[in-house]
Every structure is written in structure tokens, then in C-alpha cells.
Design a protein around this nucleic acid. Structure first.
Lengths: 194, 194
DNA sequence: GCCCAGGAGTAGACATCGTCTACGCCCGCC
DNA sequence: GGCGGGCGTAGACGATGTCTACTCCTGGGC
């Protein structure tokens, strides 16, 4: 099962993922992906009717990658839910910073709206992991579990984007995002138990 | 000072803003903007060396619009800082929902990174308004003021994007974003005083 | 009154892109 | 052994961003 032996569909998605990771979103053209995969510019069309379909498949790969990283993190840290949430948040932020182009692609609204490959639903397993942990640490006076989890996800997502985009470093003058991460966790989940 | 009498530079930015508001980001091509402004496709080049420069000017217009809306909101609501923060947050979310294409353009990382027109700095006045209010309601045990404000901004931004993009409605099953907004405010600023 | 220098916009060329269509090649099956 | 269909090629088309050569017009100096 060498990489060269895989189907063209798989190779196209892999080439696109490589490309967006290394060169950014603007480099992910149909024709460049086809070139990297060693096929003509018309070849992708047999598997992906439009460019958007191919990009959606690449974005799915991104969600799969992020989900896998989170699950690996969940295997690596101990059982305390709060510790696990902190590690999950750290993984999310690190992913966004290290794979900015892919992170951007994953949340392109035109891809999400296109409904190709049910891209929007692809984030649900990830949210489920977060929601499960949130439910374990939720205090009675907190918002309902799904609201609390949604608000926390949004906070992580906002920090990830605004930080990676450079807006938050500029506005806060901070040099790393750790303070923001812990501020968000403390705000939504209560102060970290010592 | 009729609109037709303004300089081409102004007309191009206005045409681009109209376009991104009504047709979305993919419609904001150099040539289409030039067509709407009634000039040839080469004309914008005299004022904006590249497409990115023109898009950055349009995004600046977006930040100016959002800032103006927030300031208008600040004039409309009473003096209680917490009430003002709630109104600010509501304005931010409404703007993102009502002007999705512009909101998206304003936070395109390639525009922010290009440094054209110091686009990234354009969000600072807005952040200053938020930070000022946050400082007024900050409790002694909270995170430092800039961190608290940054975390809250990120939360608002995350809710705005994930909600407008459809991810949060899908994940939480909610039909409006009010619960998320108040959950975020309560989390960062403490429960709303009755 | 003339000239002319330079700003402002036009128009065409070029490479690239996404999409569409017509065409070949090759492998397996009867 | 022939043939049909999946798989990929190749060329065309319109659109885009950028570059360059050009035209037009206007205003100031003599």
C-alpha cells in the first residue's frame, strides 16, 4: 500500500493538504494540485465535479487531522476533566497556529455552505469530545451544557483565529497565547482548582 | 458633493463595499469593481497597485462601519458599563450576521498580513472601546484588564463567526445566538447584576 | 496664443485559473 | 479476439490580475 499505489482521489486530497499546509490557501488551485499529483488538469474532475468539492475533501482531511490530534491528546493526559479540557484547548490553538492555511480552509463559509461532503457536520465529533468534558465539569449555576460548550468552543476558536491572524497579539501586546487560553477556561469553567 | 463627483478612489472603495455586502467575497474582483464604478479594468491600478490594496481599503471601510455602529450604540444606551458591553456585543454579532461577506473580508489573514494600509491596526479603536468598558467592570480576581478584554473579544468573534458560518447552530441546536452571547458575557464578567 | 509636460484613464497582451467537451488508451470480460 | 467502459489527456473558452503602450485632457510658463 505504497502512497504511489493509492487511487487518484486519495492522492489529490493528499497533494492538496500538503499544498495548503506548506503554501497557504491561495496555492490550492485545481491545476496545481493536479500537477503535484502528476496528472493533467482535467483529471480531478472525474472524482471532484468542481473545485469546491476538492477543497471540501481537503478540509475534511483537516478536520480528521485535528480530531485525531485531539484524541491522541485525550489518550496522553490523565483523567481529570479540567486537565483534559486544558489539553484539548492547547491542541486546538496549536493546530490553528501551526496549520493556519488548513485552519482557514476548514472554516471557509463558502465550503461549509456548499454542503459538499457535509463538511459542516465534520466538526461534530470534535464538538462532542469538548461537550462531554464540559458536561463533567459544569457547575449547577452555569449555563446549560450545550450552551456552555458552544460558548467555550467559540472562545477557543476566536482566540485561535485572532491570535494566528495577529490581531490579538497586537491588541493585547502579549507574546504568547497562554494567558488568553487560561483566562477563557477560567471564565467559562470557573477558576482552576489547585 | 454628489457621489458621482467624488474621486475615483472613493468610488472604487464604495463600489467594492457594495459588492461584497450584496454578492459576497467571491464577487469582489478588480474588474467587476471597475465595471460597477464605470471605468476600465486598468483604472484602479492608478490608486491601488494591486488587488490586495483595493480589498484592504474596502476592509478598512468595513472596520470604519463597524466602529461607527458601535459608537452609535454607545450613544444610544445608558451609562451602566455592563449594559453598554452587552449592547456592544450585540452590535458585533449583528454586524457579522448581516454583513457576512464584509466581516469575512475584514479578517482575511492575507490582507492583514499584507500590511496594506495598516489594516490590522484598524481594529484597535474598536478594541479600545471594549477594553475601556471591560476595565470598568473588571473584578479584582479577574485576569489583567487587557487579557480579560482580549479573551472577551475572542469569544465574541468566535461566536460571531461560528454562528454566522452555521457551525454553532448545528452543534448546539440553538435557533438564536442570544444564549451564547449572555453565556460569554456572564463567563468573563460574572453573572449579570439584576 | 501656443506648447508641452504630466496626470488620468483606455485598451490590448499575457499567464493563469475553473470548467466543459471531445478524444484516446488500456484492462477485463464474454 | 474483439469490444465496451472506466480513467486520464488535451484543447478550447471565458474570466481574472498584472503589466505596458497609448491617448486624452488640462493647466501653467512663455
Amino acid at each position: 500500500m505504497d502512497a504511489d499505489e493509492q487511487g487518484l482521489r486519495t492522492r489529490l486530497v493528499a497533494a492538496g493538504a500538503d499544498l495548503v499546509l506548506s503554501e497557504g490557501q491561495s496555492a490550492v488551485s485545481l491545476r496545481e494540485i493536479a500537477r503535484r499529483a502528476g496528472v493533467s488538469h482535467g483529471a480531478p474532475r472525474r472524482y471532484f465535479p468542481t473545485h469546491v468539492d476538492l477543497l471540501s475533501a481537503i478540509a475534511r482531511e483537516g478536520f480528521a487531522d485535528l480530531t485525531a490530534r485531539v484524541e491522541q491528546t485525550m489518550r496522553d493526559v490523565d483523567a481529570d476533566p479540567r486537565t483534559r479540557l486544558t489539553a484539548l484547548a492547547r491542541t486546538y490553538l496549536d493546530f490553528a497556529a501551526a496549520h493556519r492555511g488548513m485552519f482557514e480552509l476548514m472554516f471557509r463559509h463558502d465550503l461549509l455552505d456548499s454542503g459538499r461532503l457535509r463538511l459542516r457536520e465534520t466538526s461534530l465529533p470534535l464538538f462532542a469530545v469538548l461537550a462531554d468534558l464540559v458536561a463533567q465539569v459544569r457547575r449547577p449555576t452555569d449555563a446549560p451544557a450545550t450552551v456552555l460548550a458552544g460558548a467555550l468552543w467559540a472562545n477557543l476558536h476566536g482566540i485561535a483565529q485572532l491570535w494566528a491572524w495577529g490581531s490579538l497579539p497586537l491588541a493585547t501586546g502579549a507574546t504568547d497565547d497562554d494567558a488568553l487560553l487560561h483566562a477563557a477556561l477560567d471564565a467559562h469553567l470557573g477558576p482552576r482548582p489547585t
